[in-house]
Design a binder for these strands. Sequence first.
DNA 1: TTGTAGGCGTTATCAT
DNA 2: ATGATAACGCCTACAA
Lengths: 337, 337
Amino acid sequence: MNIGEIARRAGVSRSTVSYALSGKRPVSTATVRRINDVIAELGYRPNASARALAEGRTRTFGLAIPPASARLTDVQLEFVASVVEAAAVHDHDVLLSPSGGDHDRSFERIVTGRRVDGVILMEILLADPRVERLSQAGLPFVTIGHVEHPGASSWVDVDYAGLISRCVHHLADLGHQHVVLINRSDELVAAGYGPALRSSAGFFEAAGRCGMTAHNVCCADEPAAGLACFEQIRARWPEVTAAVTINEAALPGVQRALHRAALDVPRAFSLTGVIADRLAEDFHPPLTAADVPAGEMARLAVDLLLEQINDPSATPRSAMLAPAITLRSSTGAARRG
Amino acid sequence: MNIGEIARRAGVSRSTVSYALSGKRPVSTATVRRINDVIAELGYRPNASARALAEGRTRTFGLAIPPASARLTDVQLEFVASVVEAAAVHDHDVLLSPSGGDHDRSFERIVTGRRVDGVILMEILLADPRVERLSQAGLPFVTIGHVEHPGASSWVDVDYAGLISRCVHHLADLGHQHVVLINRSDELVAAGYGPALRSSAGFFEAAGRCGMTAHNVCCADEPAAGLACFEQIRARWPEVTAAVTINEAALPGVQRALHRAALDVPRAFSLTGVIADRLAEDFHPPLTAADVPAGEMARLAVDLLLEQINDPSATPRSAMLAPAITLRSSTGAARRG
DNA sequence: TTGTAGGCGTTATCAT
DNA sequence: ATGATAACGCCTACAA
């Protein structure tokens, strides 16, 4: 079933069918009707490959996700789903590429094979080879997280430094003197993962300003690590009365550690950070935290990407999101030493 | 950069370049070398759309995921990642389609637009309109979960009935008399979601055989629901000493309910079911449970799909997985009434 | 308002 | 062993 068949049955030329479909030139209402009838009857839809070849655009986005080996977290998953949905709103499809290492076949296939009109890069590192690859290929892209030279490309990010800083100030206001940051994993920090680095920077900066003693602890993205990590914190720095975290995957373990230590939150210990609303609400007690607005980030990323695709010469735009910190029940006045 | 340009620079015809690349006809080693040099120098890769148009195949799979509205669970996510990875092994890409309702634009675009060579359908319902749609479109597909007429199409599934039955027998052996099944949500059951129905069937069948009293409770896929659901169970049927579940998303809530009721597991209460290993191990105490082997299912699904694509007339194959039940620490002898 | 024809970049069938 | 050339199905000037 192709456009020629439709044309034949409707008694018109192929171009007329094409124009009737695209509306790029006037077609008499009578012919349009006839064509639509035939199309409806035969259930015709243009062949995407042929259209892409002729138009030079695929109406498809590439989404580079972390490889399956590195387990995706809950928010990351939500982000993927939201990107797909936002793309669908613009009648675009999403091609997945698990990538992260330097030489990924799937990523190369997508980039060089002109399979997509643009790419959204998740979980970007401060120095990410894929960014270089994409700009050299002249393929529009948007990164989630920003790179060394902001302004060089479009990105969407969360202001981890600022948010963590505000969390620290909040704790300072409550009288806490000794705080700890439960960060993402060592590997991520070593690889130059922005959110981890910026959180740490904002944390120490704010703690210094507030005259607090502060410690940073890296923790793998899993419950067991959260448990071990928290117990280690209690052992090494018993004077600590509050923790700030961006490590969502470790939360169940932290929860268990609190139980095990019979630490009442927030009376004996306060906990806050940057945590997706849903997870913050499921914690016990619900966490005072800044949301990670995955859905909004996804929509923004798609918008920025479309902007670049429609006008590759447009100056890249970017958005640094700073969601409000929602007060719930996990932070309270510091216990007296 | 196209094949013509490569041919020109290598001083050969386009077909020779094409054959040098595909190896579908002998090309002298000298020319192959020359061609490869040019290709390497210019970084050429064939245009995927043109190739798809000419070959009649896209080397792309469609993956129909539940819409973003229905939150994807952890295992579902792992499944998506695994499918992408398994597809990459065969040099195929994966196009995502959030679908589930009856009339989905994205699904239609993928199916009718010949954007993919085949489709993997996640979270299938007993009567799923997409199955009908795909077979009428003559597009190969594999379903995760099976439909009314097994044999009519390829599928991969987990033997929920059998596994749940074995869980029940295990509990019976431990002396439990009163058990409850914490199922997936009401909506899912009403929609004819296979795993929920088969779990329930296997549950009651086994309980009957063992002379136990048994109750089935539907529970939404979220922690809060798990908490409420468990407390309701305790209130309605205080005599129940063990629960079987397939609802992974509700587990955190169940965990909290156990804490809140100060129920010692497994001394005062036993818990088991079909739960992904990672989640089972993160539970406290680790759950005796059957794994949901998402990775294996994904690889199998891709294999079956490729089989159908390469030979559409091949009789559909299917696989019913029955992973072993791993004994951990959440089941024990029934407490005496 | 509509038709004709060339081109998008490959693959594959003829030839040579 | 290699070259022309016709598809593949669509879009879009250019004509009429």
